[in-house]
Amino acid sequence: MALEDRPASSREQPLGVADVVRWSGRMLDGIGLVWLEGEVTQSSRPGSGHTYFALQDRGCVLAAVMWGRDAQRMRFKIEAGQRLRVRGRLGVYDRDGKMQLYCDFAEPAGHGAEAIALEQLKAKLAAEGMFALEKKRPLPRFPRRIGVVTSAHGAAIHDIIRTIHRRMPTAILIADAAVQGPNAPAQLVQGMAMVVRAGVDVLIIGRGGGSATDLTAFNHERVVRTISRCPVPVISAVG
């Protein structure tokens, strides 16, 4: 909508508030998609699942909202203090007559989304006491059977078997599982459940080295919670 399309007004025929607010909204909508960068100064996510936040840059603040369907696709939660690069459309919220950004995508302008998601998960689990020292179980001196959850086709399994047999001839139960990729977390969880049901004194979960992306399956919340609930000691042998 062009500026020339604004509704006519005069002292004798003034516009209503709704006319001005809605015309302003149509003007902003005509800008189309925009990319913005700024620091999150406040954020809230009520039961509706929508995320309401504010972006600040050089003394200016812009209110923003991300609807629940878009927020669910995010790998991290939008929180105060983050610097984000966001995409959305500008509009006016009729009830308040306030300009805001209707955001459908956001990414960190500094640290990557994966790194932020990992730090948020670590903080969440730490607050639940997941990493408390008293939760650690002592290792048996002479385990009768050791469970190993890893890829049966990787180099790590051969190193683990060789090390165990060099130190003490002990029965080993192996659960084959993917160690990277989208199916890896579920397979690691299933593998741990299988060896525990079969009866082991110690469980080893691991893989060989790799990039941070290759190792993400072992940071998955389901994997961490399964390890925390495991009734036998768990040794992490990642990397």
Rank of each mutant, 00 (worst) to 15 (best):
M1G: 13
L3P: 10
E4K: 15
R6P: 11
A8L: 13
E12Y: 11
E12T: 09
L15I: 06
G16Y: 04
A18F: 03
V20I: 06
G25V: 00
G25M: 06
G30R: 02
G30K: 02
I31E: 05
V34A: 13
G38F: 08
V40E: 01
Q42Y: 14
Q42S: 15
S43L: 07
S44A: 09
L55E: 00
R58V: 03
G59N: 06
C60T: 05
A63L: 09
V65N: 00
V65S: 05
M66H: 11
G68D: 08
D70E: 12
Q72G: 06
F76N: 03
K77D: 14
I78V: 14
E79I: 04
E79D: 12
Q82C: 04
R85F: 07
G88I: 04
R89L: 10
L90C: 11
D94Q: 10
R95Q: 14
K98S: 12
K98C: 10
Q100D: 01
Y102V: 07
D104V: 03
A109S: 14
H111P: 10
E114L: 12
A123F: 02
M130P: 00
E134Q: 14
K135S: 04
K135H: 13
R137M: 14
R137Q: 12
R141D: 14
F142T: 05
F142G: 10
P143C: 08
S151D: 10
S151C: 06
A152N: 15
G154V: 00
G154Q: 11
I157C: 10
H158C: 05
D159N: 06
I160H: 00
I160N: 01
I164Q: 07
H165I: 08
R166P: 05
R167Q: 12
R167M: 14
R167G: 13
A171F: 03
I172A: 04
I174A: 05
A175Y: 02
A178K: 10
A178C: 14
G181K: 12
G181V: 01
P185T: 04
Q187N: 08
V189Y: 02
V189F: 11
Q190T: 10
M192V: 04
A193W: 00
M194K: 11
A198H: 14
A198W: 08
V200P: 07
L203D: 02
R207Q: 09
A212Y: 13
T213Y: 13
L215F: 08
T216H: 11
T216N: 11
A217I: 03
F218Q: 04
F218E: 00
N219T: 04
H220P: 06
V224D: 00
V224Y: 02
R225V: 03
P231E: 09
I235Q: 04
A237F: 12
A237Y: 10
G239P: 06
